[in-house]
Amino acid sequence: MNYSPTYALLIFFGFSIVTYLLFRPRKGLFWVIKNNLESNEKIVIEDILKQLYHSENSGKELDVNSLTNALKFSNSTIIDVIKKMTINELVESDGDVLKLTSTGRDYALRIVRVHRLWEKYLAEKTGFDKIEWHGRAEEMEHKLNHEETNLLATQLGNPKYDPHGDPIPTKLGKMADLDGEFLSSIAVGSVGRIIHIEDEPDVIYKQILAENIHIGSQIRVVENNKQRVVFYAEGEEFKLAPIVAANITVSILKKEDVIEDVIVRLSSLKENEVAHILGISKESRGDRRRRLLDLGFVKGTEISIDLISPMQNPTAYLVKGTSIALRKDQASKILIKKDVEYGE
């Protein structure tokens, strides 16, 4: 074939498209095939255990049918594996209903532990987006063995909760508790603290993320009906559809614990205003949080704006005698109380 620029371009684009289809992140043919080769019986067993664990915890009963619906494996695989699991005394059947044995429950708890620890790890030690944590933890929970898990826990300082607020089982299966109410069912006028944000399903979680709702923040509900839930948190107003609000858990605060109304985000501070820092939001994690603490963004510190950059972001704040620039999203995770002005 003789050279012609058109052919050269065609060959080039053809080649590019093939490469893209093969290797594009996650969905590329190469990765799909690789994942399929890796998925094996262990993964099926563990996914079944987890599914059973979660439904039993929420008081639901599962039979083989609903199990096959919930999991992405083929029916025959699941039935095969359940047979083996019964022989190994991980599950027992009670009529149609499948139940975890105590060994099965321990095993399931271990998987949950790895999953939540790994989410914690991703949140604290890596830069992955929140939206990716769950998927990555789903893969990792099948990979870490007992020792690796314990080492991971030590490195993370044996955390009690994962970044969404779910308790992490300890080595011995101990778990801190999580009691609160869904935001969708909270009476108007009550004050509470967000203690859990559910990360499934994806679509709803994305909406919560887009709203910039922060775990750990104190809220006051001002409207709650079939159309929407409206609440105030950290000086901002949020409106959610009830179905979205149902994925947020709030623990109601007693009167004496309430310090609302004065809490606002640092990002709302204006030039010439002075404020005191109340704390850093739970949304700021890992090295980022530590760095802020090390730089002196600690409770009680006086803070004011020193300089605003030409593009309005970042802003430099005067903290303990030094001018430190922060980006807007960082500033929104520092909570302050503005000083009352007495006029100039």
């Binding site: 090295d287 530590r290 760095r291 603490l293 090390d294 730089l295």
Partner: peptide, 8 residues
Amino acid sequence: TYSLLSTS
């Protein structure tokens, strides 16, 4: 360094 408590 600002501190000795972190991981950098």
